[in-house]
Design a protein around this nucleic acid. Structure first.
Lengths: 263, 263
DNA sequence: ACCATCGGTGATAATAATGAACCAACAGGA
DNA sequence: TCCTGTTGGTTCATTATTATCACCGATGGT
């Protein structure tokens, strides 16, 4: 945790769509690391293209290296385009915002968003980091992961993102049991006020949970009819995703899916 | 150079389209770093999502974090899609492979490729790292950069990629002078045998050189007619790129361009 | 002119990285 | 079966790297 590379890499997470350029002092203040230390790390990361400083201003931003790395990964294991298609189908059919995230360390990395075209809709930023414990996607990913990931997540204090966030580990473990039985997870304003999310897991070829697709609606709009509609659509699209990505859902999920919609 | 974060980040560059998954020992062998050290760094980078190990095998690969970071950068500063359009215009018009690279540390990161549809063509891998001293793109980027970048590149020994690669720093500095006058750079098999490249710089809003677009042909096919055709197309597309990306070419490049095609 | 803050630097004290040896597991071959 | 050479991963004493504080010049607002 206190390794230097960890500190250096954690700096990357402060760059977001909302704040794509940050200065040295600001970065030092947020990370709680000394200015001189941050500076040394920034220089190194600039040398490797992960960051770059705009010649003009003295601000740092994500560099061309991340574009290159993403391209390498995407050409070797193409996923984002496949996810994006599914998301657009979901948002078009349901009229609500759909998004996809992949397991990235001990959190989720949002790699795709398709917003609904309604005036009132859930809007989330591309590239956002989602916590595991307070989102439907996180719950469903943990529920179908080996205990190792769950332990890692629960070993740290769970931030109360809203007044409804589950911060008690034993209660959360019970929730995970339920989720594992149903095959999907729901989040009623546990990550953000007025946002209701429903998520379904996506798997790798060896049964590992790689991420999740989810539909998010304004909380007041989530009726039971819409719930059923969303869940059915998610089951259908998750199966398509697993098929086209070569994912093999584990037995636990298959039985949950068959329980929901018996053939 | 011997900082730990530098060593950790350098591990990322061993992952390529051709070899997207690498094991611990292999990575240690190539980087020349001790196995234990590499392992610690890999674990940290997995925790931050830059890497991930496939649950099945015990191989490491680029993680979902790089997809997220690329998305953050791309939504804040969209460039790849703009470049890609230009590349497709170039390859369609000229019938040869076009590619774009951005300055990434002390090298170039290829962020876009559009191959020609001819049977014989130059084929390069997306996400490839191009050296500064042996490619046309590198030459033109250095020629229009402040001396700082050039010094950094020339401070290290210049690898002889082919028998024609310029490895002498003073000769190369002279070449940069020439390139700065013409506004474009040519590379006759200095990076790869049988590949002839012509490159043109792309600039930032403050006149900094951000990267280059280039056309690569089999060396034997490069006639003087084709040369002129390529250069004219590159001048035109580079101007379009600078316009749509808000780039402001420095005076040196503007005079070079006007010298080539006086109004 | 002033004060605050910016990005950046350097020397010393303290921490974290290093690397050889070691382990268990697996694969292939004799 | 036994041997051998891999693999991924771990341990721990030594040591070299890193963090820290104070400082600097520049910038910008009052």
């Amino acid at each position: 945790m206190s390794s230097t590379v960890a500190k250096a890499l954690s700096l990357l997470d402060y760059f977001s769509e909302a704040e794509p350029e940050i200065g040295l002092s600001e970065l030092a203040r947020r990370s709680g690391v000394d200015k001189a230390t941050v500076h040394r790390m920034l220089v190194v990361m600039c040398n490797y293209g992960l960051l770059e400083k705009r010649g003009d201003a003295r601000l740092y931003r994500l560099g061309a290296g991340v574009l290159r790395l993403a391209r390498v990964r995407e050409t070797a294991f193409p996923v984002t385009s496949v996810f994006q298609q599914v998301l657009e189908v979901l948002s078009a059919e349901l009229g609500e915002t759909a998004h996809a995230s992949l397991v990235s360390g001990r959190a989720l990395a949002t790699i795709g968003v398709s917003e609904s075209n309604r005036g009132s809709r859930v809007s989330l930023m591309a590239g956002e980091i989602l916590p595991m414990h307070s989102t439907a996607s996180g719950l469903v990913v943990m529920a179908f992961s080996n205990g190792e990931l769950v332990d890692r997540v629960l070993s740290e204090p769970l931030a109360a993102k809203t007044s409804r966030t589950i911060t008690d580990t034993s209660i959360l473990r019970a929730r995970l049991q339920e989720v594992a039985l149903t095959g999907y997870a729901e989040s009623d304003q546990t990550n953000e006020d007025d946002v209701y999310g429903i998520a379904m897991p996506v798997f790798d070829s060896d049964g590992t949970t790689t991420g999740a697709i989810a539909v998010a609606t304004p909380a007041h709009r989530m009726t039971n009819d819409l719930r059923q509609q969303v869940i059915a659509a998610l089951f259908r699209e998750a199966e398509k995703l697993n098929y086209s990505l070569g994912g093999r859902p584990p037995a636990a999920f298959r039985t949950a899916a068959s329980r929901y919609r018996p053939d």
